[in-house]
Computed example of a mutant assay.
Amino acid sequence: MVLLVARGAAYGALPVCSQTWFAWAAPEHPEAASVLFTASFQAAISLAGGAALDRSSLLGGVTAVLMLPVVRVHRSLAPSGRPGRT
């Protein structure tokens, strides 16, 4: 229970502390600091998810196989004039 509370407190404090750090680093450009904070937070989440999938090859393989039908349906529903469509 103590570890759960500590993890919750750390997870709740991380975005606030990071955003404060970015704002202090660029006080004359608060909008740019906010954008950099959001991008860095999303990148960290993506990298953590990618690392988790990479560490468990079975889960990564199953995820890739399950995504194939999703990609096919998405590509079949996309307009023909859409850039990048083959």
Score class of each variant (00 low, 15 high):
residue 39 A to H: 13
residue 67 M to D: 10
residue 56 S to Q: 11
residue 78 A to E: 03
residue 67 M to C: 15
residue 28 E to D: 14
residue 82 R to Q: 10
residue 71 V to F: 09
residue 36 L to D: 02
residue 26 A to H: 15
residue 37 F to M: 02
residue 14 L to G: 05
residue 64 A to W: 02
residue 50 G to P: 06
residue 46 S to C: 14
residue 22 F to T: 02
residue 85 R to T: 01
residue 39 A to R: 14
residue 18 S to G: 09
residue 8 G to Q: 11
residue 71 V to G: 03
residue 56 S to L: 07
residue 31 E to Q: 12
residue 5 V to T: 14
residue 25 A to D: 08
residue 69 P to Q: 09
residue 44 A to C: 10
residue 12 G to D: 07
residue 73 V to S: 07
residue 28 E to K: 08
residue 75 R to M: 11
residue 16 V to Q: 08
residue 17 C to S: 14
residue 76 S to R: 14
residue 35 V to Y: 08
residue 29 H to V: 00
residue 75 R to G: 04
residue 62 V to Y: 08
residue 32 A to Q: 11
residue 35 V to G: 04
residue 24 W to N: 12
residue 38 T to Q: 13
residue 8 G to M: 07
residue 51 A to D: 01
residue 17 C to D: 07
residue 38 T to H: 09
residue 53 L to P: 01
residue 16 V to I: 15
residue 11 Y to M: 14
residue 22 F to E: 00
residue 25 A to H: 13
residue 48 A to I: 00
residue 77 L to D: 03
residue 29 H to P: 00
residue 74 H to S: 14
residue 15 P to I: 02
residue 10 A to R: 13
residue 71 V to L: 12
residue 10 A to F: 08
residue 64 A to R: 13
residue 61 G to Y: 02
residue 62 V to C: 03
residue 17 C to T: 14
residue 65 V to A: 13
residue 67 M to G: 10
residue 24 W to A: 13
residue 12 G to C: 08
residue 68 L to R: 15
residue 76 S to Y: 03
residue 40 S to E: 05
residue 45 I to S: 07
residue 37 F to S: 03
residue 23 A to M: 04
residue 52 A to S: 11
residue 18 S to Y: 03
residue 41 F to P: 04
residue 65 V to D: 07
residue 73 V to E: 07
residue 24 W to C: 12
residue 52 A to M: 09
residue 18 S to H: 04
residue 34 S to M: 00
residue 37 F to A: 01
residue 84 G to P: 04
residue 35 V to C: 08
residue 30 P to K: 07
residue 83 P to S: 09
residue 31 E to F: 06
residue 66 L to V: 09
residue 81 G to K: 01
residue 8 G to S: 11
residue 69 P to I: 06
residue 60 G to W: 01
residue 59 L to F: 06
